[in-house]
Amino acid sequence: MPLWLVITGLGITQIIGWGTTYYALGALSQDIEATTGWSKALIFGAFSAALLLSGLISTWAGRFIDRNGGRNMMMAGSVLAAMGCGLIGLIQHPAAYVAGWLVLGIAMRFATYDAAFASLAQIAGAGARRAISYLTLFGGLASTVFWPVSHWLSVSIGWPNAMLSYAALHIIVCLPIHALVLKDAQGEKAAETQAEDTVVPLQGIDRRKAMAWFAAALALNGIVFSSISAHVVPLFDGLGFRGDEAVAMAALIGPSQVASRIGEILLGRKLKAVHLGLIAFGLLPVALAIFWAGGFSWVSALVFAVLYGASNGLVTIAKGAVPLVLFGRRGYGEVLGLISTPNLIVNAAAPLAFALLLSGTSPQAALMIAGAAAIASGLCMARLTWLHPR
């Protein structure tokens, strides 16, 4: 199977996978609330529970991929995603809604980036970093594609039928693609290609320390990104921007993610993976500092939105590339699971915590607190880069 076809196939499933799960509520939550009368706490609490469950099974899922291959897991993820969407769409009851999201929490871990990155490592070998970079280009389009599609479906046929349409996409499109393009993503493939590594993976205490520093960088970074992303429009509104201005700022984030990933593909060969990570994690505190120093003006807001999106785009690549260089391809799925667990757990809690923060203080103060977490994230990555500048 040509690698470009594998990447293209996985790219299509990533757009659908992210768009019908992680980004679904961004377009459907208001209609769900209006038609059911359910509280926001229930609607978004079920989503947070799904992210928490995804984090709790993350390490186990990584080990499963290492032993049994990415193909089996991603196919199972497609089936589970269809079941979760179908359950939410068929039974408009709070219990079914929560249960459906819990199923989707497992599906997200089985069929989105972590599983796809591990599968590419099993297939692409030494070319895994380039393959991961290309794959993230597709994933960056998920919100751009599915926010308007979800809104149109909700208006046209209602949100329950939109969820049933998502279930059909997972069975009709994603499942066959995973079965077709991942035939070479078999268990222990990473072990077979370990001899091809150009550097010796970290071992012992150095390995554990490096994993801890990188996991901390991801988790602290995730606190900021998940908080701001969940509240970007009301946050800009609270800073004095009009509604259309706030939406325009939010709209810049997606293209900036994709643009930064294209830049990494074109210029990334000149960067070591840890230096890419340093840039990725370092851009976020720079973006917040410029926003604050500019007095939260229109110009500084534009710069913030562009740098914020660029940072998010590069962090996704760094999450896959840095572990490959430091820890090797053997056991890569488990490594991704371990370092992702804290990030997924804080992603589940951060939006609610940031909402409480916004209700108890000003948007400016909330952003300053977020800036402190962003600085800490960058310092963790700087420490890792200093320890292991390979």
Rank of each mutant, 00 (worst) to 15 (best):
A46E: 09
M108S: 11
G371P: 09
L379A: 11
F64N: 04
S39P: 00
S133D: 09
D114S: 00
W4Q: 05
D244V: 13
W147K: 07
I290Q: 08
F44D: 03
L356F: 15
A131I: 05
L367Y: 13
S39D: 11
R261D: 04
A167K: 00
V286R: 01
R129F: 01
G187R: 04
R269H: 14
V149F: 15
V335S: 06
S297N: 10
Q30F: 08
V232M: 13
A374K: 07
L5Y: 01
L5V: 06
A24M: 06
F225E: 04
A118K: 04
S359E: 15
L239W: 12
G204T: 07
G331S: 03
T21P: 04
A167W: 01
L302C: 14
A46K: 03
K270L: 12
F281N: 02
A289T: 14
R67E: 14
I253N: 06
A350I: 04
E33W: 00
T20P: 01
S39V: 05
E188F: 14
Y166W: 13
W213Y: 13
L271W: 07
A215Y: 09
A167H: 07
A96Q: 10
S297E: 09
F110W: 10
P176I: 08
G158N: 14
V299W: 14
A305F: 08
A99M: 14
P255R: 07
L358D: 11
M73S: 01
G222E: 12
G127Q: 13
L220P: 04
L266N: 05
V315H: 07
L344S: 12
S226N: 11
G263P: 02
F47H: 08
R390L: 10
L25R: 03
L266Q: 06
A128I: 01
M163D: 02
M1W: 06
C380Y: 01
V325Q: 14
A27P: 11
L80F: 14
I290E: 10
P342W: 12
I223K: 00
A287R: 02
Y332E: 02
P234Y: 06
V173T: 08
V232I: 15
L42I: 12
K209N: 15
Q30V: 05
K272I: 01
A370V: 03
C85V: 08
R207S: 13
I132K: 00
F117M: 10
G26N: 11
G187F: 10
T385P: 00
R71F: 11
N68S: 15
A121I: 10
F138N: 00
I91G: 00
A185W: 10
I262C: 08
V145S: 01
I57H: 09
V173Y: 10
A321W: 00
R242I: 03
Y308F: 15
R109A: 08
G243C: 00
P148C: 12
L102K: 06
A350G: 02
L182Y: 03
L288H: 11
G62V: 03
A212L: 13
M1R: 10
F327A: 13
V274N: 13
A99R: 05
I12P: 05
G89K: 06
I43R: 07
